[in-house]
Design a protein around this nucleic acid. Structure first.
Lengths: 203, 203
DNA sequence: TCCGTAGTTGAACGATTGCTCACAAAAATA
DNA sequence: TATTTTTGTGAGCAATCGTTCAACTACGGA
């Protein structure tokens, strides 16, 4: 039934997410996309409908592959949860072979005010990271690596914000020493959020 | 000699920075700019050269007026520095009359990878915020509100990252309770970064 | 009052945008 | 082999992009 598809969807989505992370949604033209993915407009519109469709497919793939992959490797699997959290932060700074730093999720969160449909994907990815932190913190507490009354949920949200902030500073091009200092601070601050005896008695 | 300028430069830059914060540099067309500022293309190009020139003028004005104004009011002037830091964070969440949240500095830091010329302005603004944190923390330490061996520089960088992360989460549209939780965590984490006896003996 | 100068206006330019579609190429079915 | 069905190709569309510029308007000095 018909001709075989000549291109691999995973490869196309991988180049697309790289391009969108580098240039942003609005900054990536269809000519850029054609050059990056090798896909001609016809095939692209046949498969993804329009530019929006490709972007959302790329964002979903980024969540499933990159984000959840990193969460698993650094936050869910390591035997030493705090060391995992540290490497999760460090790996955002030391991008290695990848020439351009940053995170499609962070960039889209900032740009998504113009793209309301992207908000769901952003929430999903952020929740995955926050959940990973919460899992690692829970395990760290059981191991006795944190105070026993650690407020896991609050600390997870705290680390999520810190991580997103680190990615902003990475993208801004701040020096490595500053960025590693932020990582050190993230780890050092983990013990400081305890569950209060009474809630809502501040102010 | 010659005709008087009919428009106020401060007002034009104020509308421009509002538009750029909302839509981003690439997302704001010159027709949008014309509508937002009331400036026709001729006047715009006579005064600012091109779209880039207007953007950098708006970013500089944002740094000088909004950022430094907020730093002064919340971080430099308050008699209670820690309360000032808290209100600095809170005011980023409770935008009040302004309908669209976020910060032009954060957004530009993320987008600026495509706009290398904007990097200097971003660095300048980030340094102003970090400096404000450092000033407030130093005063808090002298008042005895923090541990005496607080690592002021590291904590200032820590708060800068946390603040940028908060602005990403604000932009992503996370619920207010989560965002206020981040603020609480920021304040609670301040005491946790002390100056080590020996430096560089980690790892 | 007339002229030189600075500022305003908006039509219009070439380039680029997201997107369409007629046609060619390959695989499955007959 | 002929036909049907799916996919690849890329020229080209209308719309919009950033930008220019010639005509016009107001003000100061002579």
């Amino acid at each position: 039934m018909g001709r075989k598809q000549l291109w691999d969807q995973d490869e196309v989505l991988a180049s697309a997410m790289r391009l969108f992370r580098h240039r942003g949604y609005q900054g990536a033209s269809l000519r850029d996309i054609e050059e990056a993915t090798g896909l001609h407009p016809g095939s692209l519109y046949r498969t993804f409908g329009n530019k929006d469709g490709l972007f959302h497919a790329a964002l979903d793939a980024y969540n499933e592959r990159v984000v959840q992959g990193r969460v698993r490797v650094h936050l869910l699997e390591p035997a030493d949860p705090l060391a995992g959290i540290r490497s999760f932060f460090t790996s955002a700074v030391e991008t290695g072979a990848e020439p351009d730093p940053g995170c499609l999720l962070t960039n889209t969160a900032v740009e998504s005010f113009t793209l309301p449909r992207a908000a769901a994907g952003v929430h999903h990815g952020l929740a995955a990271i926050e959940g990973g932190f919460a899992d690692a913190l829970t395990r760290a507490r059981h191991r006795g690596d944190t105070p026993p009354d650690l407020d896991v949920a609050a600390t997870a949200a705290h680390l999520l914000a810190l991580y997103q902030g680190l990615l902003v500073l990475v993208r801004a091009g701040l020096p490595r020493t500053t960025l590693h200092g932020v990582t050190d601070g993230a780890i050092a601050s983990i013990g400081s959020l305890r569950t209060p005896r009474k809630q809502d008695d501040h102010e």
